[in-house]
Simulated assay, not measured.
Amino acid sequence: MARKIAYLPQRSNSVPHSDVFNSILLGRKPHIFFEPSKRDIEIVEKLIHDFGLMQHAFRKIDELSGGETQKVLIARALAQEPEVLSCNNLD
């Protein structure tokens, strides 16, 4: 199901001490069998570039601003390459 639908939470549910690169790489989990492929890494690197997160790639999530964290969450959802992106706006 995670290959078809990605969920974008209103707030971060990332591991707080995880870095930006690995947080986005988590979006590839439905596609990773043993370890990330070259394609998985390329997708993450492209998303980091596209979202302007290059200088934050190895910073911890809990060191980012709210807007930067939102960029990471969106990039992680897009890394899944889903058919459907579901967003939560309960606040």
Rank of each mutant, 00 (worst) to 15 (best):
I24S: 04
I24N: 03
L25P: 05
L25G: 07
L25M: 14
L26T: 09
L26Q: 11
G27V: 03
G27K: 02
G27C: 05
G27T: 04
R28E: 04
R28S: 02
R28N: 02
K29M: 09
K29E: 04
K29I: 03
P30R: 01
P30G: 02
P30T: 00
P30W: 01
P30L: 01
H31M: 06
H31G: 06
H31T: 05
H31N: 06
H31S: 06
I32T: 02
F33K: 14
F33S: 13
F33V: 14
F34R: 13
F34D: 12
E35V: 06
E35R: 10
P36W: 11
P36C: 10
P36I: 08
S37R: 13
S37W: 08
S37Q: 10
S37P: 04
K38I: 02
K38D: 07
R39E: 13
R39P: 00
R39M: 06
I41N: 03
I41Q: 03
E42N: 14
E42I: 05
E42D: 15
I43V: 14
I43K: 02
V44C: 08
V44I: 07
V44E: 02
E45L: 08
E45M: 06
E45Y: 01
K46M: 05
K46P: 00
L47C: 01
I48T: 01
I48S: 05
I48N: 04
H49A: 09
H49N: 10
H49K: 14
H49W: 11
D50I: 04
D50M: 05
D50A: 09
D50P: 07
G52I: 04
G52D: 11
L53S: 12
L53K: 08
M54N: 15
M54C: 14
M54W: 09
M54V: 14
M54Q: 15
Q55N: 15
Q55I: 09
H56P: 06
H56V: 01
H56A: 05
A57S: 11
A57M: 08
F58L: 14
F58C: 12
F58A: 09
F58R: 15
R59M: 15
R59I: 04
R59P: 07
R59T: 07
R59L: 12
R59F: 10
R59H: 15
K60M: 04
K60A: 02
K60V: 04
I61M: 15
I61E: 13
I61V: 15
I61D: 14
D62S: 03
D62M: 04
D62G: 01
D62E: 12
D62K: 04
D62V: 02
D62N: 14
D62C: 06
E63F: 10
E63N: 08
E63D: 13
E63I: 02
